[in-house]
Design a protein around this nucleic acid. Structure first.
Lengths: 310, 310
DNA sequence: TGTTTTTAATCGATATAATCGATGAAATAG
DNA sequence: CTATTTCATCGATTATATCGATTAAAAACA
């Protein structure tokens, strides 16, 4: 069993196709075919069913695929450590939430890049839940999330705070206030991000803190990006709670109106894998991203409703 | 970077010696030397200092050694999964505490082996702490321990209970009872197993439950095996708390005397790695070892002393 | 100091294994 | 029925790993 065989096996399994896998690996079809045959022969096991003129993973193959991936992941980690030690750092994988990747990360990465021109980054946008798994699985080195994280294998560092705001379209700023002149979350129409995103979580947390469950809220629209949500709100689809960065210019331009209630600040956190070796490059980036974090602010809440500032 | 290169690198690093590593791998010295050179050349990094006529790992080499080991571990896991799927199960690694390995495991393994003659086992004796790390590190597939375990990556199943007893030499059964006719742990001379063993832990727990720390106890002798402890007690070295299995025949033969106090039953538990693929053979063994566990029994305790049964 | 032994690197030769291009066989599409 | 797709196989080629022998350097020993 060699790493090459595993690499070929995984590629073939993922493509479901010997020829295309071979292409994508830059080798001949016969070489790929031979590698699979040799892997199967070495343990007298069948990993692919030859069905028709194609192939399909057997159940055994599917089980072994997980193992093969794990070995390759570990090997690529080892390789990147080696290259880092040799002073040829590979790209640093960063998985960040939409809000952070769009409004927080770019300028910090730019200043860091300016000072460390040889370093390269590989930034992917994932919602908070997906970032968590990306770090645990080793798909990325550094994760940047808004909400809380659960996994015990993660170390978490606070890196910043974000003010979130409640906004509605400027064309229909009629607020459903209750008899006490307070804002009732239940009678508003909400436009939200998908479950698992930090932005969505912001609303869920707020609801929970005034004694409501998510089911009590009237979710009118669920959209997959901050900008999509903003567009919907501008079109009058309802209200949302979102990072001030996303809506600052729309508010300034008068297209959106911010409802002046006190909302909790949200934490931006960096998560990394507890047991994974951090390359020198990674350590430098971590240091750069963690410097100068601001302080959180508390929030006063009451039953099912929120005080609107005078 | 190939698995062979990593294997050779690890072997050389562990031996600190190219020639001996090559021997132990069954290859020529020149082949091993070339493999190292190729590994170093591929990333332009120096893993060994050539000092005198020997070699020594560099700091970089030491860091990479961890990675290399991790890759090889993962690879050997993958290989064993493959062989298992092919119906050629490799030996199942079992790490068990002394007491369990000696008095509990043999007959269960014997009955299992009788019904599954093709299966092989690789049993090592470790104390409870060492078993925990063996499972976490993947050195063994199944762990059998007496005490509690901490690591979140472990799944734990109760498999049995063990009665532990307090014994002294029959030649000096004078018990240091206090004025209430109760047994004071502090004035006894104890013979114990090493820290980290379940047997030692039994005494520590008992002390804690009557409000004492281990430092309050008079530890006369610390010995590395149950039988060594028993021999010491028989020679009149003091008292100990130990599994009834270890001392049953000595009590029956009149060489040891059991002090009739109520002691808590101790749990035998099986621990396995949460994320690791269990082979078919392993699943069968787990099923066999977990069937028919008995029920625990509570214990009544009071301040610093123990009631001796009439 | 000179000699022997130990050790890792190197070199040329050889064996092993991977890869290629071509071909065949089987299945599908038109 | 033909053309095409796709994987397996075969022989030739190439690359690479390994070997045995040798060298160079260091250490041990006399």
């Amino acid at each position: 069993m060699t790493l090459d065989q595993l690499r070929i096996f995984v590629e073939v399994a993922e493509h479901g196709h010997v020829t295309r896998a071979a292409e994508s690996l830059g080798m001949s079809q016969s070489a790929a075919s031979a590698a699979i045959a040799s892997l199967e022969g070495s343990c007298e096991i069948i990993l692919f069913d030859r069905v028709g003129r194609g192939i399909r993973l057997t159940d055994n193959g599917r089980i072994f695929l997980r193992e093969a991936r794990a070995v390759l992941d570990r090997a690529s980690m080892a390789r990147s450590v080696l290259q880092d030690l040799a002073g040829h750092p590979g790209p640093i994988g960063i998985a960040a939430s939409q809000t952070i990747a769009t409004y927080w990360l770019p300028r910090r990465l730019a200043t860091f890049q300016a000072a460390n021109s040889r370093m390269r980054f590989n930034v992917v946008i994932r919602n908070t839940n997906e970032v968590e798994t990306a770090i645990v699985e080793g798909e990325a080195n550094i994760g940047l999330v808004e909400g809380p994280t659960q996994h015990p294998a993660l170390i978490r560092q606070l890196i910043d705070h974000d003010k979130i705001v409640l906004v509605v379209s400027s064309e229909q700023p009629r607020l459903p206030l209750n008899k006490n002149g307070r804002l009732d979350l239940r009678v508003m129409k909400w436009v939200v991000r998908e479950t698992g995103s930090g932005t969505r979580r912001g609303l869920e947390d707020l609801a929970a803190r005034v004694g409501l469950s998510v089911n009590d809220l009237n979710i009118a629209l669920e959209l997959p990006s901050n900008e999509a949500v903003r567009e919907a709100i501008e079109a009058g689809a309802g209200a949302t709670i979102i990072s001030r960065h996303v809506v600052a210019s729309a508010i300034a331009a008068g297209r959106l109106t911010e409802i002046p209630i006190e909302l909790p600040q949200r934490e931006y956190a960096m998560v990394r894998h507890r047991d994974r070796h951090a390359t020198l490059a990674e350590k430098a980036l971590v240091a750069h991203l963690t410097e100068a974090t601001s302080q959180p602010v508390s929030l006063e809440l009451s039953e099912n409703s929120l005080k609107v500032a005078p």
